[in-house]
Nucleic acid binder design. Structure first.
Lengths: 183, 183
DNA sequence: GAAGGCATGTAAATCGTTACATGATTTA
DNA sequence: TAAATCATGTAACGATTTACATGCCTTC
């Protein structure tokens, strides 16, 4: 059978941890995996239909007089596909597009002052991400304690560490460049 | 005027540091920025033509009897566009797609053994990148010393540190998971 | 009764990769 | 002389984003 598409992977995983509708999956992605695996409505809704055609998820229209919603759940085949992907030894996708680093790479075209300004902007970005992640941390810890999901919480802590590392690297480069100018 | 496209940015920067042909630009990208800003022939050649139409680069067919090649150089406007982008305060693009992290996020669906296997595979990937970058390091240092470009070299060192950090995080997570199983 | 959040979906446009086609020159 | 490398380019496909359209329900 065909491997899961990029969006299919995050959808199956999100359904497994209790997200039921396309809207809910999108909101969960934006809160959690967005920093390393994004997905938009334009991908999610069509992909849900394809996954249903392939028999990996089942849909049920919400019964009562509430809002119209289509709730999805994993089939046996869907659980197997998710587990198969999680344990497969295929080469792992790793793609980064980091404009701060690219500008830094070309910073020989800049004055030291301009290079420092660039680094400060890059660092500001990483510090913002750290703040946003720290803000989610208590919610994630609560879910960790109450619902027994450990790995989303560990991932969040890893994200905080990563962006702290990147911000720290910017700071080190700032002083590296600054010190050269006052010998 | 329109902002530079993603590929336009790396092309102008690469021409400035002495890459002259589309082929040469592609090779330089693959050697250096690929880990944080990739580009393929399918983007590079058409984009070079667009940049020339916009007056940011100039082309010259190679004169002598050698291989057919089109050599590009920056115009005044091109230098200004490059500098304008490098110093612009537009929000910096930062996009990551990390399948190892995504799998880790969903690893509550795995046994501890499977989770450790996943982490080892992720770590192996980061260690490979570190090795490849270390292999380039002497070449990059030579360029740094001879041609006076500092920032590509600093970027390389940063990349090594980053992937060492990521590999180290994997290792810490491995022992975190392992220790829980033998109390 | 207005605003905001819940909810589903599509169309168009853009972006990017991959694979292919072509051919010259250099090196082993 | 065969293989590797230099060199340019396009077509097809797939992935993704953005913007738009629609409407219900809950809360203020």
């Amino acid at each position: 059978m065909e491997p899961l598409s990029a969006t299919g992977r995050v959808i199956l995983g999100m359904i497994r941890i209790g997200r039921r509708t396309g809207y809910d999956i999108k909101a969960a992605v934006d809160r959690s995996t967005r920093f390393f695996w994004a997905a938009s409505y334009g991908q999610i809704y069509p992909e849900l239909k394809r996954l249903e055609e392939r028999g990996l998820v089942e849909s049920a229209a919400s019964p009562d007089g509430g809002r119209r919603r289509t709730e999805y759940s994993l089939t046996k085949a869907g659980e197997a596909a998710l587990h198969g992907w999680l344990t497969s030894s295929e080469e792992l996708v790793y793609e980064l597009r980091d404009e701060g680093l690219l500008k830094f790479f070309f910073a020989d075209a800049l004055s030291p002052e301009e290079a420092v300004t660039l680094l400060r902007a890059t660092r500001a970005h990483h510090e913002e991400v750290v703040q946003r992640l720290r803000a989610i941390e208590p919610v994630a810890r609560a879910k960790h304690d109450e619902q027994g999901f450990r790995f989303p919480y560990l991932t969040l802590l890893g994200g905080i560490e990563l962006h702290e590392f990147l911000g720290g690297w910017c700071r080190r480069m700032e002083s590296e460049i600054t010190k050269e100018r006052t010998p």
